[in-house]
C-alpha cells in the first residue's frame, strides 16, 4: 500500500488544480467542475486519513460531502440555467451584479 504521503500529495495536487481552475477559467461550467475537483481532493484526503488512522469518521464525512456536493451541483446548475436564460451567457466575467 502506498504511503500516506502519496495520498496527501495527490490530494494537494488535485486541490491546487481545482483552485487554479476556479480562479482562471471563465466558463461557469468549468468552475463547477473545478469545485467538484476540490471537493473530491478533500474527499480523497479524508478517506486516506480514515484508512490510515483506522477511524471511520472520515469516511462518514465523505458520504456527507457527496450528498452536499450533489445538492450543490443541482442548485448551482439550476441557477446557471436561469442565468443563461436571462443573459444568454455563462461567461463569469460578464456577470457582476453583486458589485458593491
Amino acid at each position: 500500500m502506498a504511503p500516506l504521503e502519496h495520498y496527501i500529495i495527490l490530494s494537494c495536487i488535485l486541490f491546487g488544480l481545482g483552485i487554479i481552475g476556479f480562479l482562471t477559467r471563465r466558463n461557469a461550467l468549468i468552475l463547477f467542475i473545478s469545485i467538484e475537483l476540490m471537493l473530491n481532493a478533500v474527499n480523497l484526503m479524508l478517506v486516506a486519513f480514515s484508512t490510515f488512522k483506522a477511524n471511520i469518521n472520515g469516511q462518514v464525512m465523505v458520504l456527507f460531502i457527496f450528498a452536499v456536493a450533489a445538492a450543490e451541483v443541482a442548485v448551482g446548475l439550476a441557477i446557471l440555467i436561469c442565468l443563461f436564460r436571462q443573459i444568454k451567457t455563462v461567461d463569469i466575467c460578464r456577470i457582476n451584479l453583486l458589485k458593491g
Binding site: F22, L23, T24, L31, I92, C93, I95, N96, L97, L98, K99, G100
Partner: peptide, 8 residues
C-alpha cells in the same frame, strides 16, 4: 471596490 462582483 474590493467587492467588484466578479466571482473569481
Amino acid at each position: 471596490l474590493l467587492h467588484n462582483g466578479y466571482l473569481q
